[in-house]
Design a protein around this nucleic acid. Structure first.
Length: 436
DNA sequence: GCGATCAGCT
DNA sequence: CACAGCTGATCGC
């Protein structure tokens, strides 16, 4: 296969065109290289293009090639080995992972390849049905030779409800704590729909940290500032960086006033109650919930008890299966729809890499072939058609002198700089707990 | 001294 | 466990 042509979510150079699926940090490594991005044209969604300069100030707007959902672009590449022209048409498909997230379908002289990036595939929701139609339209009957699949939750034991259902559960939980402050853990991008739903249902504004509000406004959400605020005095509900929602931070907040924490996440081990039993994928839920108007049947039955959701910690804090990645049934439908010749998972860890072929070989065209998927190192396998020189173990050279002097001063400055650029870690926002 | 990158952690 | 992402240490300019 010809190499050095196109890269998806990989920005180490050596390609002729670059594609960014969405603006989460684990997909943008290499984009912030010194002196700005200059390796080649960078394709992404218009939303991502709008947000990019805030994350990567050095980026030159002239290299950006915004591609709207459903739109196509023609690429004229040249083969690094023969110099011959290679024509490729790329089409952007909504990925429904976070704002601005896309899949990319490549068709042309190299065959047909689909890179999902991270995606969700809730076919009970209109948005996903539209995405499915866009994908089928773009495919136009072609067979996908290689599918690069978001295999984050590629295991039959993993299922979660559509996000609107979980959003309603969240409203339910907050309503059940009318006198509590509420802390919700979120990332730098994503789950805006969830927060908007909560705000509207409870007629309450939601506090976010300043950089998060900037992101929201760049997304074109809440221009009239009716939903989000950076003033804690206006609301009891706060969305804080996910990593800052800890036992310690909740304890600290509870010394001031009663506070619950809510972690919307697909991570299965979070949905355990205090006795350590997994609830939402277990056998007999205590109760189920009906949410009306979410699909044609008018209701979705839930295998989840909204009255006593799993505890995040041993406190009034909850984990909800609100996932921005497809669950197993959704992956199965996706595989059924695409029926690729080959599938490769884009997510892997050193401990557990779930090869999608393990579960979906019957949905692949080449299931007679032996498994040629390379053994994965920790990280994501995002590159396509690029020189596959992945360095697996870059050992840190030892032997340099240990410098101790002024290091603490240096540390704090680094931290301050990062906070200015990326947004601060918020532990006890604007709460006068102990000011010293 | 500074930015980039890695290891470690949640 | 680690979705995505913070933190501190270290490297190289």
């Amino acid at each position: 296969m010809d190499e050095g042509l196109v890269s998806v979510d990989k920005f180490s150079g050596g390609s002729q065109a670059y594609f960014l699926t969405h603006l989460h940090q684990d997909h943008t490594r290499g984009l912030g290289a010194a002196g700005g991005w200059r390796h080649g044209p960078l394709y992404c969604s218009p939303v991502t293009a709008r947000l990019l300069p805030t994350r990567f100030p050095g980026i030159d707007a002239s290299v950006l090639r915004p591609l709207a959902s459903g739109a196509s672009a023609s690429l004229s590449l040249s083969s690094p080995s023969t110099g011959r022209l290679i024509s490729v048409v790329v089409t952007a498909i909504p990925a429904l992972h976070c704002p601005g997230s896309l899949m990319y379908l490549f068709r042309g002289d190299l065959g047909c390849m689909l890179c999902t990036g991270d995606f969700r595939w809730e076919l009970g929701c209109e948005r996903a049905r539209a995405a499915k139609k866009a994908l089928l339209d773009a495919l136009a009957g072609d067979t996908v030779d290689v599918l690069y699949l978001d295999n984050t939750y590629c295991h039959p034991s993993i299922s979660f409800p559509p996000r609107p259902v979980v959003a309603e559960q969240m409203v339910y939980i907050i309503r059940a704590h009318p006198d509590h402050e509420v802390i919700i853990g979120v990332d730098t991008l994503g789950k805006e729909d969830l927060l908007i739903h909560i705000s509207r249902a409870l007629q309450t504004k939601i506090w976010v940290w300043p950089q998060r509000l900037q992101t929201i406004h760049l997304l074109g959400i809440d221009d009239k500032q009716e939903i989000f605020t950076t003033h804690t005095s206006l609301t009891r509900i706060r969305a804080v960086p996910r990593y800052s929602l800890t036992i310690e931070s909740l304890d600290a907040l509870n010394t001031v006033c009663p506070t619950i924490g809510i972690m919307p996440s697909g991570l299965p081990w979070l949905w355990k109650n205090t006795k350590g039993k997994t609830k939402s994928c277990g056998k007999s839920p205590v109760k189920s919930i009906r949410c009306k108007g979410l699909n044609e049947e008018g209701a979705i039955e839930m295998d989840y008890d909204p009255l006593s959701p799993p505890k995040l910690f041993e406190k009034d804090s909850y984990a909800l299966p609100y996932s921005d990645h497809a669950c197993f049934a959704e992956l199965e439908d996706f595989m059924q729809t695409v029926r690729p010749s080959t599938v490769i998972g884009i997510v892997s860890t050193s401990l557990r890499y779930v090869n999608p072929r393990q579960h979906f070989s019957h949905l692949c065209g080449d299931n007679v072939c032996s498994d040629k998927t390379p053994v994965k190192s920790k990280g994501r396998d995002n590159a396509i058609l690029t020189p596959k020189k992945r360095k697996n173990d870059s050992k840190t050279p030892k032997g340099s002198k240990v410098r101790i002097s002024s290091s603490s001063l240096y540390r704090s400055r680094v931290t301050m700089k990062r906070r200015q650029c990326c947004g601060a870690k918020i532990r006890e926002p604007e709460e006068p707990i102990s000011v010293d």
